[in-house]
Design a protein around this nucleic acid. Structure first.
Lengths: 188, 188
DNA sequence: CGTTAGTTTGAGAGGACTCAAAGTCTGTGG
DNA sequence: CCACAGACTTTGAGTCCTCTCAAACTAACG
């Protein structure tokens, strides 16, 4: 569990009290590749932390699957992607490798928010980090060409290229899979 | 100031204590049209609430001005747009009408966060609202055509059309001003 | 090996952009 | 009260990026 606490302390330092309160609510679990960790994100009752492994969030848009988010090790699912109902429909999270996750129920989380001011702060700061990520994403979609977005992606996640199929990356980058293939070919 | 408190209470109900603590830190001011309310957002020391009037946030991208955000009455500047340094450079807020704003310094705000758990929660919830707005924006840019985005804009802000010049709206919607002009013409 | 998922390639279409010029509106000064 | 400068909007022509549809490959797995 130490890894998760490190992650949290890195956002904002927590007291020993708060830390052990958090620990008492955590559960660890291991799932294998292709497991659907979350069927319907908006109805998911838990927040997850990926200790080891890899995940992706996706949904359907006009019959096509859109990958929204990649969950590398040491990332949190819940605050990061939309965990609110959308008209778009199902938003799911699938594991792309054997993965160890740590979870806490939203019920317990809410209780911790109520009880510990500092945990509430933690939540605020994580939300703000998410805002920054989304703003960067907006900039990328709005101003960069498909080629530039792909290049940035390679820089940011060099190892994902091997692990993840082209189609997932293409939809993540907001472009057609065919387009990505051509871009990759034309490498330069 | 009651209007601002209503706004806040609407996000999450605040105790009388917290409310009067907030009130004691607020300042009201009135500025006229074209006034630059914030020169450099990332260095701005205050959070603003628009009680009456209209504002826009903008920045420069490759020499062109991009409008990022419109501040209608009852909206907050600070958490809503990026108030963090960006490589992009200057991010400013300009008033488009004579405007009454209520402000609080970030220093005081931090103090309130420290002192009142419930205000920290308020901050968290406002951040989450912002996340939702940004996700909608991403969906719009990524999946809707320029025409559709314009239509949605008209629905969402019907009165802004009269008040704001085309160029601002175009960049807000992530399209060329010339394109917007054609779209508007082709109405349907 | 055959079946299926995933990737590449080709041809053609369309949306949005750029550059450029013409029109329109608005406010100020003569 | 008119005229003109400056700002904003419209229109035209041409280009490019990305998409779609379709078909050919390739790789992986049972």
């Amino acid at each position: 569990m130490i890894q998760f606490l490190n992650y949290l302390n890195n956002v904002t330092p927590l007291s020993d009290n708060a830390q052990s309160a958090i620990i008492s609510k955590l559960k660890k679990a291991k799932y294998s590749k292709n497991h659907i960790l979350i069927k319907e994100l908006s109805r998911c009752e838990h927040l997850f932390f990926i200790e080891k492994g890899l995940a992706r969030a996706y949904y359907f848009k006009d019959g096509k699957e859109i990958t929204d988010w990649f969950g590398l090790e040491n990332s949190v699912i819940g605050p990061v992607v939309r965990h609110f109902p959308t008209k778009t429909g199902m938003h799911s999270v699938e594991l792309l490798e054997d993965t160890t996750v740590i979870s806490i129920s939203f019920y317990d989380l809410q209780e911790l928010y109520d009880k510990y001011h500092e945990i509430e702060r933690l939540g605020r700061l994580i939300a703000i980090q998410t805002i920054l990520v989304l703003q960067q994403k907006i900039d990328a979609i709005q101003f960069l060409t498909a080629k530039q977005r792909y290049r940035d992606f390679i820089k940011a996640y060099p190892d994902l290229l091997q692990k993840v199929s082209l189609g997932y990356i293409a939809s993540y980058l907001g472009m057609n899979q065919v387009t990505l293939s051509r871009i990759r070919k034309s490498k330069s």
